[in-house]
Every structure is written in C-alpha cells, then in structure tokens.
Amino acid sequence: MHTLPETLHKGMKVYDSTNDEIGVVEDFKFSDEDPSTPGLEQTDVNPTDVDRDDDLVTIMARAFAGEDNLSDELKEKLLREGFVRLDAEGLFAADRYITPDQIEGADGDRLLLSVPKSALMKTH
C-alpha cells in the first residue's frame, strides 16, 4: 500500500516526474488505513490544522471546497486512501489531486512525483 510521506507539509514545492516545479502543497490528508499513523481517524484531515470536533461533512467541505466535479465515490476514495491537493502554478492552472501511488518521495521542502503533471486529477 502506498502512503503519503511523513514529512509532508503545506507549502512544499511539488515537482513532477520531469522535474518541473508544478505548484505547492495546499492541503493533504493521510490515509485512514496508514499503519504509520495509528489511531488516525477520518476526522483528521490535517492533524495540526483541524479541530478534533469536526464531523465528516465539515471535513469533506473543507477538503473539497468548490470541487463539484468530483464524484462522491471519488471523494470517498481520496478520503480513505489519502491525498495531496496541489495549488497549481499559472494564472489559469486548475488545482489537482495527487494520490499516494503518484508520489516518488519527499526531500526536504520538495515533494517528488512519479508521474507527469498531466496524469493528475484536475479540479476544474
């Protein structure tokens, strides 16, 4: 099972498989099934930024704000497996979602992907 790097944090620069900088980490959620995060519940989108009393509806609204083009099934999959929301660079660039299996690794303030930018899910 693929998991998000433990050193993942907001503001990390993201590089695709061609080593192009494509944006920064805007938000993320670790997998509900990640063995390295014992006790992490679906209510923990980002443990440092979320009030523990938030319910699932509030978390989904925050994680997928304005993302009406994502199916409920896809949203549930992202919440279950974990994701990174990329704030894409460029005036007309659509934000994108990165799944754990698309991540090569993390190096300091760099998140390295194993796929090109075109392989990422667009939000618009």
Rank of each mutant, 00 (worst) to 15 (best):
F30K: 11
M60W: 02
P5R: 09
L70F: 13
A94K: 10
T37S: 15
I98W: 12
V115C: 14
P38L: 05
S36E: 08
A65P: 00
E67F: 07
D107W: 04
T123P: 00
S17K: 15
L70D: 05
E41W: 07
S118N: 13
D32I: 02
I103H: 09
D55M: 06
H2V: 06
D107C: 01
V24F: 09
T99N: 06
F83T: 10
L74R: 07
T123R: 02
R110G: 12
G105S: 03
K122I: 03
I59M: 12
Y97C: 07
L78T: 00
G90C: 03
D27K: 03
Y97A: 08
S118G: 00
I22K: 01
S71P: 07
S17V: 11
L112E: 13
K77S: 00
I22Q: 00
N46I: 02
R80E: 12
E89R: 02
D16T: 09
L112T: 02
S17A: 15
K75M: 10
L4V: 08
D34F: 03
G105P: 00
D51Y: 01
K77T: 02
K77E: 06
L79Q: 02
T3H: 10
D51I: 06
K75V: 11
G11Y: 01
E76L: 13
A61E: 10
D55S: 10
N19P: 06
L112R: 11
E81G: 00
D16N: 14
L86D: 05
L4K: 06
T3S: 13
S114A: 15
R110D: 14
K10R: 14
G11Q: 05
A61I: 04
A93Y: 06
T99K: 00
E89S: 15
K117I: 07
E81P: 01
A94H: 13
N19V: 13
D68C: 14
S17T: 11
L79E: 04
N69P: 01
Y15S: 14
D55H: 13
T37G: 02
L113Y: 12
M12S: 02
T7F: 00
P38S: 06
A106W: 15
T18I: 09
F28C: 12
E21A: 15
D54M: 12
E89W: 04
S114R: 10
Y15I: 12
G11D: 08
N19Q: 14
D95N: 14
L78H: 05
D53H: 15
I22A: 10
T43R: 06
L56R: 01
